[in-house]
Design a protein around this nucleic acid. Structure first.
Lengths: 226, 226
DNA sequence: ACGATGCTTCGCTATCGGTCAAACCATGAA
DNA sequence: TTCATGGTTTGACCGATAGCGAAGCATCGT
């Protein structure tokens, strides 16, 4: 009753096509410049500038100036989560695009979600780790077991001092393709970094897709079976 | 990049204060009439009517006509989930109201979320059931164990033929008060109904709060310890 | 049959906000 | 210094839409 205006303020910001495009373009966690975002949203540079100012003032974006560029990124995972939730709702109510683009299957297979792995491979990784008792999942929280800690070390991830509770939280990033959770948080971020470092996969240049190599997929499947 | 407009269409709908108020008022799962919603949103009756038509056309609401009334309700739990996610984001970015209303603590304690229990008591119930191995939680899914099935029967819940997988899904309804999951789905709905039937608690008249009686809370705590 | 109630539709106004051109500022390069 | 590039600001335009009064239906009660 009273909280209508609060969510309306945020939703109205996301509710503009240009701004929604800007936010979508940032969903892979990268920091982009104003002009890149303007092009991505199909608006002029001044328009994008004002939009981004508003989004930053509202706390959805962060930006840093470097030289004459201004790099903009999302302010947190909760923004990604909100956007994915909206996508899910849009899909259910028939607002999604009917024609699934050519790179759509690749996105369903594996994609970047802010800074971690999502899509079929992301779910596989998470469920495999739960199955193998590397992760303990209960009551909305995820804890790394001692076996999981050893596994991480063997995998080449240095959790270091970031072993706090929330650093390995499983943010239930329920996405539109798989209706399942996948691993987010620092551990999810580190896993994806490692996958890239091992050259098991690389990022598609202009989408959120993660493209596995044949060999990389084999290794991935061996490490995270079924 | 291409999915900007899709989420923008939905977000724009939620982005209007009057519509956001209407949606918020419906978050307790009840079906309300147009005039009730108009009053709740502080707009005239014609205005509310058009808003509701738009929301229904977009698939966010469902309505049935009964006599000269038209009863409106949310079209599904995903709408609730989206709204709660937006509230969460609004709270984090400082858009929440500073003055926490008088009935705010009660909402944090226990409240209705669409058709199931949320808030501290909702989380307690869920975590207790996981702890006691009544529920098995892994990989974003929740399954009722055989012990859980016996428990449900003893508790007076007839799951009947609704023993399909998704009927007991744990929709990760991460809410603004507790940042944890709680039980949704048919099982969550049935539990809350049972709690009301046993007179352990009753609903506040004009909010989403669930008010436990002293005795009801004792029984609840015994059944769902820690 | 009559009026009352709940809701919808129409028509209108006022307002808000997205958009861009042009001017302006700041930084980096030659 | 001078030019070029990236970004911001200003101002004006314009389309979209929220809002409501009034009229129009439909349904219920009497």
């Amino acid at each position: 009753m009273k909280d209508g205006p609060h969510i309306a303020a945020i939703a109205a910001l996301i509710g503009d096509p240009a701004r929604a495009n800007i936010l979508s373009a940032l969903m892979d966690g990268r920091a982009l410049t104003i002009s890149e975002l303007a092009r991505s949203a199909n608006v002029g540079l001044p328009t994008a500038s004002t939009h981004i100012s508003k989004l930053e003032a509202a706390g959805l974006l962060l930006s840093i100036k470097q030289g004459r560029h201004r790099y903009v990124r999302l302010s947190g995972e909760d923004v990604v989560h909100t956007l994915e939730t909206l996508m899910l709702l849009a899909a259910r109510t028939g607002h999604r695009r009917v024609r699934t683009g050519p790179r759509d299957p690749a996105l369903r297979e594996a994609r970047v979600c802010y800074d971690h792995l999502a899509g079929a491979r992301g779910v596989q990784m998470f469920e495999s780790m739960v199955q193998s008792r590397l992760l303990e999942c209960g009551g909305g929280h995820v804890r790394l077991t001692s076996a999981g800690r050893r596994f991480a070390q063997r995998f080449g991830i240095d959790l270091g001092e970031h072993q706090t509770k929330d650093s390995v939280t499983c943010v239930s990033c329920l996405d539109w393709s798989e209706r399942r959770d996948h691993l987010a948080g620092r551990l999810g971020c580190a896993c994806l970094s490692r996958i890239f470092a091992l050259k098991w996969a690389r990022r598609d240049k202009d989408s959120r897709a993660v493209l596995f190599s044949a060999n990389g997929l084999r290794e991935f499947n061996r490490l995270f079976p079924i």
